[in-house]
Design a protein around this nucleic acid. Sequence first.
DNA 1: ACGACAATGTACGGGACGGTTAATTATGTC
DNA 2: GACATAATTAACCGTCCCGTACATTGTCGT
Lengths: 219, 219
Amino acid sequence: MGEGIGSVEKASRGGWKQDPEGVRSNIVAVAMAEFAQNGLSGARIDEIAAKTLTSKRMIYYYFGDKEGLYRTVLEEAYRKVRSGEQELDLEHLAPDAALARLVEFTFDHHSSNPDFIRIVMIENIHHGAYLEQSDLIATLNEGAIRKLEQICARGRAAGLFRPEIEPLELHWMISALSFFNVSNRPTFSRIFGPALFGAEGQKTLRGHAVEMVMRFVKA
Amino acid sequence: MGEGIGSVEKASRGGWKQDPEGVRSNIVAVAMAEFAQNGLSGARIDEIAAKTLTSKRMIYYYFGDKEGLYRTVLEEAYRKVRSGEQELDLEHLAPDAALARLVEFTFDHHSSNPDFIRIVMIENIHHGAYLEQSDLIATLNEGAIRKLEQICARGRAAGLFRPEIEPLELHWMISALSFFNVSNRPTFSRIFGPALFGAEGQKTLRGHAVEMVMRFVKA
DNA sequence: ACGACAATGTACGGGACGGTTAATTATGTC
DNA sequence: GACATAATTAACCGTCCCGTACATTGTCGT
């Protein structure tokens, strides 16, 4: 929730009464929540329109069709989350501390963005067919991995990490633990009880995630 | 794919021409594939019916409605996978070897049952609402964790494992790595390339999963 | 053999839902 | 101020799709 509406300042010409950018971003915000909640085929255009400040016609005016809207939402979700990740600087930390910090951050960050997780789950259900069409995504690659490359290089140089550690594989591990922790909460909690997902349990699991990664890289 | 149809022997009375059990299980098999492929709202009853050896009428006759069919599929998916897990005996192995074996097995088992993974993903998208209604599931708890409890006990007794290791938390880790490896393959592969998901990459990741868990539990 | 009932096939209704058509208002241009 | 164009509204349409009514056949008990 939070801001919800989504307003944008006009840059080019003078004052407008009509606010296309605002309408657009409002639609995307509503649609993101709705797709995250119900999936691509589960989400209802009429429902999205109703929760919007505008009408259904606008959705088709700006996004063409349901899939066009979904694609936009998907890209926006990635953009939003990755931008949140930028605010983390690890340069000033020792390599092992930096890695530990990165794991903690990723764990928490995923935990605080369940809608993003759900969108990614949904996209995976669709075999990544829509992400396939987006070329924005390729660039997000860079930033996510670069941090790990630097940490690995420094850790290896300092003799702290094993030399054969691969940044991409490390990223896979960290993502797996952080993602699963959110994505499979409902079923896991139902089968094995909710203990791991309370405040205490989450602190423990986060600690374990850090511990696993640290022990894995240690020389 | 594989057998596909699903035929069942009659137990009670003499020979039948009509085969309700066969029809039933045939529907479930088809529906499982279809739900796994398209999700709950994405799956089409008409499509399921068409791929069945029988008619749409039978689906409603046996399962009431779409959600009833989905619930059955969900339970059946868990049952099938858990029964596959039974065939693993670890008693005769040393605790550390047993644990390593369990991780390898889980990793491979998830990898060979993508439809099960997809069903669980879908169920999580639905907040586990349908699993909630099933009481069969509680019993699956037992077997899955018991193995780990025994391994932990033996490992601790032998002084190989840290004493504070919790079986449930261990299960969470193993599941996370094994599950994510399948569930997020499409998006991960799209963003970071398919290298990790070829034969070579998978062997590496499986090794890493084992390594992570082993290093984590080591005293 | 026959009645009861389980199992199955066919055809169709009704509503939800994605998408569109045509008209209306606001904004900038000359 | 008139005109072109962007932004927006409201009503509507056609189809996909879940579920059902009705008819029919097979099987078992007696």
